[in-house]
Amino acid sequence: MNKKAILILLILLAATIILVLPVGRYPVSVSEIWRSVSGHLSGRELSQREMDIVHVFLAIRLPRILAALLVGSALSVSGAVYQSMFMNPLVSPGILGVLAGASCGAAVGIVAFSSWPLTQLFSFLGGLAGVGLSLFFSCLYPKAPILALLVGGLVSSSFFMALTSIFKYLADPARQLPELVYWLMGTLSRSSAEQLQWVAPLMLAGLLFLTLSAKTINALSQGEDEARALGIESGRARLLLIGTATLVCSLSVILSGIIQWVGLVIPHVLRLLVGPDNRTLLPATALGGALFLLLTDTLVRSIWTAEFPLGIITALICMPLFAFSLWHDWRRRP
């Protein structure tokens, strides 16, 4: 494990969190936040401005920052895990149809029920259905389960995208369609403290489990027979790890909608920087993904007066990053 790389990323992330705290519509400095929040916690009588600051910080800014960190980590770590599981550095959470399934679920929630909590629940169930369909296809062709699962993911993605299009077509263009489209673009503007309260513990548990399984993931990334010869019940371990990665990104969809690319590019770039050993790579992608999404989210909520969809910015930034990492990787190959 490369402790230096982890430490550098940890310091960078901590510094970035402090730097972005004062950024936003409501002008406030770090020291003011510190004074108000510590005063609030110690039960001191607060002035009106201090009460406003506490409200902005605890109800709006902190949840949003935490959501950015969690979603970034979840997408990146599950991306890294999928890449090792399928022995293919070019797959991402999208590959199993998780994001497509989740977006379809969201469409059901928005169009059929017009209810925000139901939308979240359906998107989560949709993510699970997306994986379920991929796994179903892999069972149809047991001879090459890994390949069949990838093809199953493709089928599952396009199936759920088609379903989503039906809902877009049926949606009320004045009210529902914008909301649906906005969700599909990916945004953190809806993440709230209540959402975090029930989503965050599960996500953290999943991320911790994946990170602690790094050695098993390493062995599984060498192929079926070798993993078995190294003492791993490969089928069961693979299922458990893929399942956990899927759970973690389905939960991220509840917080942020569909954010593509992060799960592909962040692990890919960090693998170039810290190497493929998952004992270092997984904590590094967790921190790197969190850092990346925090920076991009701060960008979208501060540059324009109107909120800009996060998913668009991540795609715009990730595309050249990905091209560069591919080129760099190709050049380094023996």
Binding site: L212, S213, K215, A219, L230, G231, I232, R279
Partner: peptide, 8 residues
């Protein structure tokens, strides 16, 4: 790996 599957 088989001798210590968890942690480092």
């Amino acid at each position: 790996t088989a001798l210590s599957p968890w942690l480092g």
